[in-house]
Design a protein around this nucleic acid. Structure first.
Length: 210
DNA sequence: CTACCGATATTCT
DNA sequence: GAATATCGGTAGA
């Protein structure tokens, strides 16, 4: 059996069904395998928090493509984040891979993460990309292997294993509980509410005061 | 542990 | 110009 037909079948389901089913899945790339412990759903058609909410751009084009590929974007001038593209072609849904735990290739992951504690090797979406050596050159790549491989778990999780809550760092649609994680996993990233405002007005010109 | 801050691509206003 | 699906360093409790 090819797993890839199964993979696409899974990913064509509504993204809110897909997201929790990806918990515990294995992702392998460049010599490192992680087990997903935390994900977030983005439903571009109706989701103000999604990159695709305002339509297609060069950056988010992969979200509109066929399921089973990876959408990788660069953000904050510094970090990469990777999503599993879901839904039928043309529907810009995706699941952001927020955290995982390294189950193979730990030495490589440690080297890429520059001495971080093992718990932090793939804790947070940008750290996860660093551990797996994913960047925008992989945007649009297939998750069916062999280079990049997503293996959904085959067994159901025990009751109570999945927790849900608000997504991290969004200002818009912050109330939607579309983040899913494995209960009590130490590798789940810390929740940070969106920055309320950058408020950073610089004092122009002059000395102030008074 | 919390809080701030800088790095700066991409998109929006 | 300002905001953002972030992180690592530093400072302080």
């Amino acid at each position: 059996m090819t797993g890839s037909a199964d993979l696409v079948g899974l990913l064509e389901r509504p993204v809110l069904d897909v997201a929790p089913r990806l918990l515990g899945a294995l992702v392998t790339h460049a010599g490192v395998t992680i087990r997903l412990t935390e994900v977030e759903a983005y439903d571009g058609a109706e989701d103000p928090g999604s990159h695709a909410y305002r339509g297609r751009t060069r950056r988010n084009a992969t979200m509109f493509g066929t399921p089973g590929h990876v959408y990788v974007y660069f953000t904050y001038g510094m970090h990469h984040c990777a999503n599993v593209v879901c839904g039928p072609e043309g529907v810009p849904a995706a699941v952001l891979m927020r955290a995982g735990d390294v189950v193979a290739g730990v030495d490589l992951a440690r080297a890429r993460r520059n001495g971080a504690p093992d718990r932090d090797l793939a804790r947070g979406p940008a750290r996860l990309c660093q551990a797996l050596a994913l960047d925008t050159s992989h945007d649009g790549a297939s998750l069916a292997g062999p280079d990049l491989l997503l293996q959904p778990r085959s067994r159901a999780l025990a009751r109570g294993r999945v927790s849900t809550g608000p997504r991290v760092g969004l200002r818009l649609a912050a109330d939607r509980p579309w983040r899913f994680w494995l209960t009590d996993e130490p590798t789940v990233s810390a929740y940070r509410p969106a920055v309320v405002r950058t408020t950073r007005r610089r004092v122009d010109g002059g000395p102030s005061t008074e």
